[in-house]
Design a protein around this nucleic acid. Sequence first.
DNA 1: CTGTTAGCGCGTTCAG
DNA 2: CTGAACGCGCTAACAG
Lengths: 348, 348
Amino acid sequence: MDKPTQLTTNSPAVKKRRVTVVEVAEAAGVSVSAVSRAFNPEASISRPLREKVFKAAAALNYKPNRMARGIKSRSSLVGILMTDFNNPFYLPILSRFTSEIQKRDCHSLLINVNSDMDIQEAVELVMEYNVDGLIITSASLPQQLVDACRSQNTPVVIFGRDSSDNSVTVVSCDNVLAGRMAADMLLDAGYMRPAFVAGPIGTSATVDRQRGFISRLMERGCNQWQVVEGGEFSYDAGYDATLRVFKNSERPDALFYADDIMACGGMDALRYELALKIPQDVGVLGVDDIRLAKSRSYNLSTIRQPNEEMIQSTMDVLFEHISNPNLPPQSITLPCEPVLRGSTQKHR
Amino acid sequence: MDKPTQLTTNSPAVKKRRVTVVEVAEAAGVSVSAVSRAFNPEASISRPLREKVFKAAAALNYKPNRMARGIKSRSSLVGILMTDFNNPFYLPILSRFTSEIQKRDCHSLLINVNSDMDIQEAVELVMEYNVDGLIITSASLPQQLVDACRSQNTPVVIFGRDSSDNSVTVVSCDNVLAGRMAADMLLDAGYMRPAFVAGPIGTSATVDRQRGFISRLMERGCNQWQVVEGGEFSYDAGYDATLRVFKNSERPDALFYADDIMACGGMDALRYELALKIPQDVGVLGVDDIRLAKSRSYNLSTIRQPNEEMIQSTMDVLFEHISNPNLPPQSITLPCEPVLRGSTQKHR
DNA sequence: CTGTTAGCGCGTTCAG
DNA sequence: CTGAACGCGCTAACAG
């Protein structure tokens, strides 16, 4: 009767008002806090009261407003920072992350960190949303990023990158081991003059793989190896690098690529540009085990990263840190596994 | 002095307090609303005042709290609903969407709609975040979804799907035309008995492509065509469907797949399982023009979807609707374009 | 153009 | 276990 501010009730442009706790409380004949508690799993409330609230809420089609909720308590948002949208490797990973986050009644804020915006900036930005936690999938990890993460007291997990610094939580696979496995696979198959095609400069994954690879080659007495720059993790980069390698006088008889998508590009260069036979003339090996690796066209031997386990660990450790903010950072390294396919089966 | 609730100030677990407008206002010697306006691009505020606020804010390392902001005004969140995380087609698209959204000072809430959760539920969920807008990339579009979208008054754009219903905004490419182009490409190349390998049942894209394909074949007097179920949009589905086709007595001499990733699977089945030569024995054609299509291994002729333009249109129309909520829904259909590669070049 | 003030929708004290 | 009242950080309405 005496609501003086109701002048524009029937304007067509008016944003349809959402149902709020107050209305639900009125409808259910209870207090607002009862409604609040009913929708909060860890609050203590009697069974019948909760039921009553739920019934009224359902009747009014009430949905809690996560924005309002997020202002004081948890936002239910988990940030995911991604840098490499070119590599198909990341699509299934993204799928798993979002799915797991949703299972925990949270949602994913996906941040695309491209060249326009550096990672530092992205981290600060995502913090404006009061995210409960942050997952970073970045091959390179500048020190400033580590600092940025630590200065926030929001749990951060770095996915797929080895830790040189143990002040931040990291989940990765053992890339040095991957390199060593690669050396063994190629030498065991009878190749003598392998080359490593590196990935983006300064990314730990490629550095560690190279280190493991070379050191294992040396251990086994193989000295005729070479390393070439590859550039980015992409089909084209693998293709181009391969052509460059074979311009040299010292031609390798096997190629270990920093990742699968580069290896696929490399294989196409070998077959269709250089007219070399795989695996007879040249052996090819990658890392990741992306979906394409097991296609009949590529049939690529590779070192499989344990994605499922890595993702599971990431989620576990992240939510542990969310519910217990002063846990110390930890570093989890999972083993990888060789996958023998046609591209290295020289003798058969 | 007389703050009675400050008992646990030096607890290590205390969440580091964020700087707020009030503190910035005090530091700058202005009012809170001045601070608010300074951070709001469309607010009217004098140059020197804004500078002063910014300086104080920078000194305190103030960041606006988007959650608190979102409660009254825009949330700066745009929801992206994705269903198909298996198809590499969507990774670059996701990249563009997130990037474009960020350019507009918004961020992406990525929802993975898998079997655990139906689309309807996902829409309601995302609405709890008060998203400013919603992008849906879904091959199938149940009526209930359309209803859900309309009942909210949040702008929704459906990406990559034709509209049978014009009560919701849709951006897609002309899939019927794609089918017609496919028919012309295959007939022009000299193939006589083409087959269409369909995608997921009930998805408009595959239905429309099939319709255009068949009708154009008939127009040009070709009657020896067949249609086979493909299942999902995936490598394996394409592979398996291809093997099934060639078990029949009526063997086609060309295959038009509902999308590229199926076509890649199909090509591998043809070459490595059936020992058929592409394009001599069988012509192969896809739709999408994914990255893999132009690899040397596949070199797949295809009908290119104008992704750039589709994404641009999607963003434009979405943000138009965000700033002007009672615009009528519209339906945008963009033309596609044939891409001739090796898989259909029978004569040369 | 600027400051003051009153909410936004919800969680969380604090009494009962 | 329940309800009343306060405050979160910010924007919007109004007044100067």
